[in-house]
C-alpha cells in the first residue's frame, strides 16, 4: 500500500513536470520572434516614435519563458532594493502587501471572533444581526474603498480597512457557527461541574469551536490576499498590486508574470500556515 502510494506520488510529480514543460514549450513557440516579417509594415515616422522593434512586430511585447526566467532571477537576486519611490525591490512590495493583509486580518479577527461568539451563544443577537450580515457580506470589498478614502482620508489605512471588511465575514460566520454547534453534552458537563461562564467560554466552547473558527480564518486570509492586489492597484504607492499596475504602465509583461507567480506562491504559503494552525487545534472525536 505504502509503495503504491509512493509510486502514485512519484507519477503525479512526473505528470506535473510534464504539464509544466508542455506549457512552457507552447509559450515558447507562441512568443518566438518571427524572422524577417515585413520590415516596412508601418510608417517610418511611427516606427521612429515607438521604437523599431515594437513597430515592426519582430519582437512582441509578450516575453518568452526565458525572458520571464531572467526577470524572475533578477528580482530574486536583489529583492529588497529601494531606488526612489517608484522603483523598489519586489520583496519590499510583497512585504508591504503582506503587512497590510496581516494587519487588516488581525483587526478583523479581533472583531469577528468575540462578535461571532456572541452571535453563536445568543439567538437574540443572531437574529438581530443576521439582516446586516446577509446584506453586507456579498458586497465586494472594493465597493467600500471610496467610502473609506473619503472618511479615513489616508490611502494606506483605507486599503487596510478594505482587507478588514473582506476578512471579517468568513471569520464571523464560522465562529458563530462553531460556537452554536458545540455539543450540548459538553456544555452539560460544564454546567454540572458548576463552571462559570468565562471558564466555560475559554475551556469548553473555544476549544470545541476552534477547528471551525480556524477554517473561517483560512478562508479569510485567502480572500484578503486576493483583494489586496486589487486594492493596491486602486490606491497606488506601494505594494505588489501597485507593482503590477506600474509594470502594466511600463508594458513590462515579464515583470507582471513574475509578480503573478510570486503572488501565487505567497498565497500558497499563507494558506499552508493557516492549515497548519488549524491542524494544531483540531481534535479527533
Amino acid at each position: 500500500m505504502a509503495a503504491f502510494k509512493n509510486s502514485l506520488r512519484l507519477r503525479a510529480a512526473l505528470l506535473s513536470l510534464l504539464i509544466f514543460a508542455a506549457i512552457v514549450g507552447l509559450w515558447q513557440i507562441a512568443t518566438q520572434p518571427v524572422a524577417g516579417s515585413g520590415t516596412a509594415a508601418v510608417d517610418p515616422e511611427y516606427a521612429k516614435l515607438v521604437g523599431v522593434a515594437a513597430a515592426t512586430g519582430s519582437k512582441s511585447a509578450m516575453p518568452t519563458p526565458a525572458d520571464v526566467g531572467a526577470t524572475l532571477w533578477k528580482h530574486l537576486l536583489d529583492p529588497f532594493y529601494i531606488r526612489g519611490s517608484n522603483d523598489k525591490g519586489i520583496g519590499i512590495q510583497l512585504a508591504y502587501s503582506l503587512g497590510r493583509v496581516l494587519l487588516g486580518f488581525a483587526l478583523a479577527a479581533l472583531v469577528a471572533v468575540p462578535l461571532g461568539f456572541l452571535i453563536g451563544m445568543s439567538p437574540l443577537v443572531y437574529r438581530a444581526l443576521d439582516p446586516f450580515i446577509q446584506v453586507l457580506k456579498p458586497v465586494s470589498p472594493l465597493a467600500w474603498m471610496p467610502l473609506a478614502l473619503y472618511t479615513i482620508k489616508d490611502s494606506a489605512i483605507s486599503s487596510i480597512f478594505v482587507i478588514f471588511i473582506c476578512s471579517v465575514w468568513p471569520m464571523l460566520i464560522n465562529t458563530a457557527f462553531g460556537v452554536a454547534g458545540v455539543r450540548k453534552e459538553w456544555l452539560n458537563v460544564s454546567r454540572t461541574l458548576e463552571v462559570g461562564p468565562f471558564r466555560t467560554a475559554f475551556k469548553v466552547i473555544l476549544p470545541a469551536a476552534a477547528p471551525t473558527i480556524m477554517t473561517g480564518m483560512r478562508i479569510s486570509v485567502g480572500i484578503a490576499w486576493l483583494v489586496i492586489v486589487a486594492a493596491e492597484m486602486l490606491v497606488g504607492g506601494t505594494g505588489i498590486g501597485y507593482f503590477v499596475w506600474n509594470e502594466w504602465n511600463n508594458l513590462s509583461i515579464a515583470n507582471i508574470i513574475t509578480a503573478i507567480l510570486l503572488i501565487g506562491l505567497v498565497g500558497l504559503v499563507l494558506d499552508q500556515v493557516l492549515a497548519w494552525l488549524a491542524k494544531l487545534v483540531t481534535y479527533p472525536e
Binding site: 453534552e185 458537563v189 461541574l193 458548576e194 476549544p207 476552534a210
Partner: peptide, 19 residues
C-alpha cells in the same frame, strides 16, 4: 434549582472533552 458539584453525572455517551 440548578446543577451542583454535589451531584455528579455519568452521561450515557461518556461526554468527555475530546481535545
Amino acid at each position: 434549582d440548578g446543577p451542583s458539584l454535589d451531584r455528579a453525572v455519568i452521561f450515557q455517551g461518556h461526554a468527555l472533552l475530546p481535545w
